[in-house]
Nucleic acid binder design. Sequence first.
DNA 1: TCTAACCTGATC
DNA 2: GATCAGGTTAGA
Length: 290
Amino acid sequence: MPELPEVENVARELRPALCGRRLLALDCHFPGVLIAGGGVEIDPWRPRRVVAVHRRGKLLLLDLEGDLGMSVHLRMTGRLSLEDPSTPRRPHTHVTAAVDDGRELRFVDPRRFGRVEVATRQHRAGTPFLRSLGPEPQDLDADALAARLAARRGPVKSVLLDQRLVAGLGNIYVDEILHRAGLHPRLEADRLLAPEIVGLVEAMRAVLDEAIESGGSTIRDYRSPDGRAGEFTARHRVFGRAGEPCLVCGTPVRKVRLSGRGTHFCPQCQPRRRRRPRRRTARRPRGGTP
DNA sequence: TCTAACCTGATC
DNA sequence: GATCAGGTTAGA
């Protein structure tokens, strides 16, 4: 659920609330959800000040004093909230941190896919997942995207979901971006035309900017740390709207399964027209250079 | 490159 | 009771 816009909203809300504050205690209530890395000792916990809050892809990163770094991945149902300790903890509250302003930072995750990790910042930076992340969408121009897409096979939808290609996109925003760009999700990533890639970059920026500004999308579980639902859901053009009319042309939105993920698109606005044929000479038996 | 697996809960 | 879900990844 939480994709780049949701995690960005969490970071923006936690930054002023946590920077400069100390985490007085850190407790894990379900084994395995809180992990220590890089030989860092977290039990017993020594109070640490939060130095910075940022985001990389779908990862939320807290820098702590003493060269420590905390990373939180919300995966499907993870949620961070900042609450008064007297408020009863919701079910599936797996990690809690006491903040020195009297509040409590809580990590709730029913499906328990999410993780909170505390490590040295150097160890965190070397984590395979973080290292493998592609560029932030904001840092990607059409040329760079074209180069990355050219090296990949498979439907553009699946390729955009791959965090190594570009970081932070998930199922909601890939569907919304492809609709905005007028591209069918099954188009081969390495056969997009230059103007289509320009449109794709523009759609990516536009959709993500709008989603961030409207607080992200709430399908079911997502809430910002102070409990607000995202309002971008109401502006989805295809995601979650199967059978409903496309907001651009009125054609019913279709939902199909593509590489295991529910995929929404408008068959009219996102035509699956014939692509420029792959030049025969461009085909190499295996891994050849073009 | 695709599927199954990791989990719980909501919905069909 | 079966199916589906916003993510990631190990294994085929």
